[in-house]
Simulated assay, not measured.
Amino acid sequence: MKVYYECAPCFLRQAKEALDLATEDENLKMEVMEELVGIVYNEFRKDAVSNEVGTKIHRTIKERTKNEDPYLLEKKKGNEIALKFLPKIKKIIKEKDGLEAYVKAAIVGNIIDFGALGVNFDTEKGIIENMEKDIALNHVPELEEDLKSAKTVLYLADNNGEIVFDKLLIEKLKEYDVEVTVALKEKPILNDACVEDALQIGLDDAANLISTGTDSIGVIYGDVSEEFKEIFDESDLVISKGLGNYEGITEMKLGDKPVFCLLNAKCDPIARDIGVNLGDNVVLKL
């Protein structure tokens, strides 16, 4: 996805929050922010890809502050929130049971995002409100139909905490007799889930786990490993979670395989790019 005009102030808002999490050194914050403003000045243009600019910003923060995981405490908080709501989510799913209920739970998990929504967002309130909303753009019937002819599914994970709800959907997907592989980040960036985060919640019991081979926000084809590219190319169906993956995968050559984006449209640029309203839950077949 190409940047929209609102992306520039959002990059700087995220940069400020990440710096505050990464270091308490005020002089260093000033030095790094000068660099980050320079990145936005040099990289922000009409045809720039949003997650590529964001990746450069957050890699710079990690490198300059020597803090490899600024969002570590937020990631732990995300897991705590998800586990708190897990019994309630399971109860709702059990009452409805169909694929759409599991998909909706996974999308609601996408609310646990301290990057897009900020570190002060009331995540618990967001989860409750979104569980009561329908899926505004709903390609679940197409997903269910494509699952019937697929043998392998590649699931692009997004945030820590969110993967707790992803696990419920992945277990449901296996009822369609598919082998599921979940791709996670090689190293921390924002509050994205890494392989070790997935192991902590037992996601390896439900799927094969691989890393993208990098720490990019979402997927950037030029950054990912050859192993990931091979699995991506050979998978029969791809499920892409979240904003960063949407931003990246819409810039990739997808071939003939069905690709489904599951997300909450948490910002105006994403909503406009897809053609939905801000805050809508989305299941989009590309």
Rank of each mutant, 00 (worst) to 15 (best):
N208F: 09
I112Y: 08
G126I: 06
N110H: 07
K125P: 01
K187M: 08
I170Y: 06
L184W: 01
V224S: 01
Q200T: 11
G115A: 14
L147K: 02
D166Q: 06
Y176K: 01
I135H: 06
S216R: 05
F114W: 13
V180D: 05
I217Q: 09
L184P: 05
E175G: 15
D197P: 01
E124L: 05
I111E: 15
L154E: 06
N191L: 08
A101E: 12
I128N: 03
I210A: 10
D197M: 04
K172T: 10
E175K: 14
I128L: 14
N130D: 13
S216A: 15
I170V: 15
D158A: 14
D134S: 13
V219C: 06
L168E: 12
I127S: 06
E142W: 02
V178N: 08
C194W: 02
L169E: 09
N130Y: 03
F228A: 14
D215N: 15
I231M: 03
Y155C: 11
A106E: 03
D197Q: 05
P188T: 08
E230F: 03
A101M: 04
I217F: 11
K167F: 02
T181S: 05
F232E: 10
E145L: 07
G126L: 07
K104L: 00
E227L: 07
E171K: 15
K174G: 11
N160K: 07
A207L: 05
E227T: 11
E230N: 14
F232N: 10
L199R: 14
A206K: 04
Y155I: 10
D113I: 02
L203F: 09
D197I: 03
L156H: 13
V219S: 01
L184V: 04
L156M: 14
G98Y: 07
F228D: 14
I231T: 14
K104S: 07
V119L: 14
V108K: 04
T214H: 03
V119E: 06
D166L: 06
I210K: 07
I189G: 00
A198M: 04
A105K: 06
A206S: 15
N120R: 12
K167Y: 00
I210T: 10
L190G: 10
K125Q: 09
G109V: 06
V164P: 02
A116W: 00
A198S: 11
G222A: 11
F228H: 12
A198Y: 02
K172D: 12
M131K: 05
N159R: 09
S149I: 08
E145M: 07
L203Q: 10
E132K: 13
G222S: 11
L184N: 05
V103L: 03
V182M: 05
A101K: 03
A116S: 13
E132L: 04
D122L: 02
K151Q: 08
D197N: 11
V119I: 15
A105G: 09
E144W: 00
H139A: 15
T123Q: 09
E145G: 00
E179F: 01
V180E: 05
I92D: 14
N191G: 09
V195T: 08
N191F: 04
K167E: 02
S216L: 07
